[in-house]
């Protein structure tokens, strides 16, 4: 194994610096665009004069706008994102508390989507042109048009209200309960996500099944089962991983809505509540965390691609 293929792991973060700066500029500008005294905007109408004085000094709110941005960066570097108006605790701590359900929701959805998409795509690719293929293609076309929040409510009516299998909403106290609460939300997001992946996987599997190396393996008398597991699947999964990475922003957007449907106390729900309560420090920070997560996931996907496919050079 040659390590020089992994050199980009060290150089790529440098290329990401401009994007991260851009993210900080957008989040900074977003809040400064709100009309009114920034100290009042950030602290709400019930702020004490002392608190306003403090935040003026901390964020340099009396200085020119460019200097204010530098203050903002300095505070960012120190992990000082301000306090939430509503929860009255540091935003960073709030984000830390809310990150677990969101991570579980995103991770669970991706795993479930792959678990749905791989067999469906294999079935479609193996029965190309037959009814099973048409049905699966219909699913992947129509699946994109289903509003996830509506699908979620329909699933709640069926599985929670009628069949009483899963809780209607909320998040549990221990791990077993939490996973039980997350089944329906994960399934909802995974259904929409698997529609996208199935379409992509099916196309690459059809190409791989007809490829020269698969034909060569067949000529050597290798079983179709082995050809699928050893040759077709690994090659077909690589573009799917990249597709997942490209869609991570969409996936995060989806979880924001789904968290609201199921009242899951994650980052998405925090963001939506922050908007309603004009808790701008929270809105700003959550948007920034999500953006950085998107950049990070794309970086990790590159590492995965290089690790899986020895031909790839980044």
């Amino acid at each position: 194994m040659s390590l020089h293929r992994y050199r980009f792991v060290l150089t790529r973060p440098l290329q990401l610096v401009p994007v991260l700066f851009g993210i900080s500029i957008i989040t900074f500008v977003l809040v400064r665009l709100i009309p009114g005294d920034p100290a009042r905007v950030l602290l709400g109408t019930k702020a004490t004069p002392e608190a306003i004085e403090r935040i003026r000094a901390q964020f340099g709110l009396d200085e020119p706008i460019l200097l204010q941005y530098l203050y903002f960066l300095k505070n960012l570097g120190a992990g000082e994102l301000g306090n939430s108006i509503l929860y009255k605790i540091p935003v960073l701590r709030l984000v830390g508390e809310r990150i677990e359900p969101t991570l579980l929701l995103v991770g669970g959805s991706v795993l479930l989507a792959l678990a749905l998409a791989i067999p469906l795509a294999a079935l479609a690719a193996g029965n190309r042109g037959r009814p099973a293929d048409h049905a699966i293609r219909l699913f992947s076309t129509a699946g994109l048009g289903f509003p996830p929040f509506w699908l979620a409510i329909m699933l709640i009516i069926l599985f929670s209200v009628k069949l009483d299998l899963f809780p209607v909403a909320g998040y549990g106290d221990d791990w077993a309960e939490r996973l039980h609460h997350l089944v329906l939300p994960c399934f909802t997001v995974a259904l929409a996500l698997s529609a996208v992946i199935t379409r992509n996987l099916r196309a690459s599997m059809i190409a791989e099944l007809a490829s020269d190396h698969a034909t060569a393996a067949r000529a050597r008398g290798v079983s179709e089962r082995r050809i699928f597991w050893r040759h077709v699947l690994p090659n077909a999964v690589i573009p799917a991983i990249n597709l997942l990475a490209v869609n991570i922003g969409w996936l995060i957007g989806g979880t924001v809505v789904i968290e609201s449907v199921f009242s899951i106390p994650g980052l998405g729900q925090l963001l939506v509540r922050g908007i309603f309560t004009r808790d701008y420090m929270v809105v700003q920070s959550v948007a920034m965390v999500f953006a950085c997560a998107t950049v990070l996931v794309n970086f990790l996907a590159d590492i995965c691609t290089v690790a899986i496919d020895p031909r790839v050079q980044l």
Binding site: V19, I26, W250, G254, V256, L271, V283, A287
Partner: peptide
């Protein structure tokens, strides 16, 4: 193109929600 990169770094719905918040 750098501006495009930065806007794309944000999850679509999250950036929309942040703008609607303002």
């Amino acid at each position: 193109m750098r501006v495009v990169d930065v806007v794309l770094a944000f999850p679509f719905l999250v950036l929309m929600l942040a703008i609607i918040a303002i």
